[in-house]
């Protein structure tokens, strides 16, 4: 069952008055509302959730790429309702990377408590504190997000590429990643494919 996010937020604010934590409502039918935490406050918030509120199980860590305002504008967000606009705020000035944590509590049988953390941008300020010291299950999942999205988790014990090889330089799960063009093309009436096929086999062009 979904946890009572309002109560958790109140307790968090009571215990950590300096931490920047906002409630982000989920507009969909799933009603899994989330807490947006500032990167610097993440370790403190997580420690509190783990020790005091007994969220002892981190199930899932998701990385998300929100490239630029153009793409975010496509998101059907009501202009007048800013708080419910998550995910994909149309009002964000520039793109960012987001990491989402899904927490559960074994003893209380509640969850998921959804935490969101955002980087400053997509190139330089991509650092987020690692939570491996609190939940070990984040170890490989954070490495995966580092590999595929390029989020740098500070304090991670072994931050290396995990799925791609070490010499690889791109972050393939980002929305603007262009995969190597190594297809063979079959005859097709599809104009776009034919256009790419022309670049593939320039020598065979007749005209």
């Amino acid at each position: 069952m979904n946890p009572d996010v309002d109560t958790i937020l109140t307790r968090l604010r009571g215990a950590l008055p300096d931490a920047t934590v906002e409630l982000r409502a989920n507009p969909g039918p799933a009603e899994q509302h989330s807490l947006l935490v500032a990167p610097a406050d993440l370790p403190g918030v997580c420690r509190f959730l783990h020790d005091e509120l007994r969220f002892d199980y981190l199930s899932n860590v998701t990385g998300i790429d929100w490239p630029d305002p153009v793409l975010a504008d496509k998101v059907a967000v009501p202009e007048d309702d800013e708080d419910s606009g998550d995910p994909g705020k149309a009002t964000e000035p520039q793109g960012f990377l987001e990491v989402v944590y899904h927490l559960y509590s074994h003893p209380d049988r509640v969850g998921p408590l959804v935490l969101r953390v955002r980087t400053g941008d997509r190139t330089d300020r991509v650092e987020i504190p690692s939570v491996v010291s609190i939940w070990r299950s984040a170890e490989f999942q954070e490495r995966e997000i580092y590999d595929l999205f390029g989020v740098r988790f500070t304090g991670h014990p072994d931050l290396r590429r995990i799925l791609m090889w070490d010499e690889f330089v791109d972050h393939p799960m980002r929305k603007d990643y262009v995969a190597p063009d190594d297809f063979e093309y079959e005859p097709t009436p599809h104009a776009e494919v034919l256009e790419r096929a022309r670049t593939h086999y320039p020598a065979t062009e007749k005209d």
Partner: peptide, 29 residues
């Protein structure tokens, strides 16, 4: 509709979950 959802079941090997984010289009974001 726009929103996100995390669903999980007890698979034979353990907890199998899918985290989906919808931006209101036909494709998952």
């Amino acid at each position: 509709p726009v929103g996100d959802a995390y669903g999980r079941i007890e698979g034979p090997k353990g907890e199998l979950g899918f985290h989906l984010i919808s931006d209101g289009t036909t494709d998952p974001y």
